[in-house]
């Protein structure tokens, strides 16, 4: 079977390492070319695919006629420019994370897609599309949770697993976007009213970011993302309501999924508990990307409006961390600098 979509892969870092096996076995896709800013990484990346060539430059990848679409997992600081270049070269683009570090960067990508009649899709839904999120979704209802008032999303992973160079420190834009996307989607994308944040470098390649936000409806939201060898690994999402609370805890040794609700006597009672189980979000994203290319509309995953909202969160968090204060409006915040 000939592949429907011929791909160029831009970026051979952590996201590429996670996804290459899935990509290699999907018959709908064929990888024609691989590029990375580090030539050795591009060579190694190309070896994962039997028919792929390693490109020495991004322009070389874009110039290839056997590349219909680009999957972009390069460093977040480069992504918007690389995405626009690909779209202008007539390629569809699937961007890792929310594509940009600000709403303006996402807008530039979307405008380039419109102007060139190509698809720009975003892959921030790694956690949203996972099986345990589907389980959580069955409980994330007003009937089960009641009024939601507190949400906490945490990912602490070892810095030694951080494959980006020290200057990139990609933990916050990418992992932060995945966690935000998962939580906000379960909550129905409530409006962000204000946030305050701290982002500090940690060790040689790490970073620790903490965002504390006020969401519409009186929801207090914490996003805590770190790549550090000096913290215990954690990976959890907790949503608390006045009728019930759910938690997805999938760190090693974590509790898995649990839902606890109010029981007679105003006591909390464990209603459901399941150990952590594996997931396949990338396959869903790939399928959705292909559908978008074929029909012009994606059915699952991060929408452009959601990517823009995630980028707004990330930009506000950077601005708040830089200015060391709570911020509400991105344009006003940046104008105040």
């Amino acid at each position: 079977m000939n592949p429907t979509v011929k791909l160029g892969l831009a970026g051979c870092g952590g996201a590429f390492a996670n996804d290459r096996a899935e990509l290699a076995k999907d018959p709908a896709y064929g990888v024609s070319a691989v590029w990375d800013a580090e030539p050795a990484a591009a060579q190694a990346g190309a070896q994962a695919f039997p028919k792929a060539a390693a490109c020495s430059s991004y322009a070389e990848l874009l110039a290839r006629a056997d590349v219909d679409a680009v999957i972009l997992t390069a460093d977040a600081s480069e992504r918007a420019a690389l995405a626009c270049a690909a779209l202008e070269a007539g390629k569809h683009v699937l961007c890792e994370g929310c594509g940009g570090r600000s709403p303006e960067e996402v807008d530039r990508i979307l405008e380039a897609a419109r102007a060139n009649g190509k698809i720009a899709a975003f892959h921030a839904a790694r956690l949203r599309l996972a099986g345990f999120t589907a389980l959580a979704r069955t409980y994330a209802t007003p009937e089960r949770l009641g009024r939601v008032y507190r949400v906490e999303a945490v990912l602490h992973r070892p810095a030694r697993e951080n494959s980006v160079p020290p200057e990139a420190r990609a933990i916050f834009p990418d992992a932060g976007a995945y966690l935000l996307d998962q939580a906000l989607d379960l909550l129905g994308w409530p409006k962000l009213e204000a946030l305050t944040a701290q982002i500090v470098p940690h060790g040689a390649t790490g970073e620790h970011a903490c965002v504390y936000a006020r969401l519409a409806g009186g929801i207090a939201f914490t996003l805590d993302v770190a790549a550090s060898d000096r913290l215990r690994p954690r990976h959890a999402l907790t949503i608390l309501g006045d009728r019930g609370g759910l938690a997805i805890d999938h760190a090693k040794g974590g509790r898995g999924f649990s839902f606890i609700e109010e029981a007679p006597g105003m006591r909390a009672k464990l209603m459901e508990s399941k150990p952590f189980f594996a997931f396949d979000p990338w396959g869903t994203s790939l399928r959705s990307f292909r559908e978008a290319i074929e029909s012009g509309k994606a059915t699952e995953g991060t929408t452009p409006a959601q990517a823009r909202e995630l980028a707004r969160w990330l930009a506000l968090a950077r601005a708040s961390a830089d200015q060391k204060r709570e911020v509400r409006n991105l344009a006003e915040t940046l104008a105040a600098v």
């Binding site: 906490e152 805590d224 938690a247």
Partner: peptide, 11 residues
Amino acid sequence: TLDTTARVNQH
């Protein structure tokens, strides 16, 4: 960062 609760439906 701090959380203090009187009631919570979680562990």
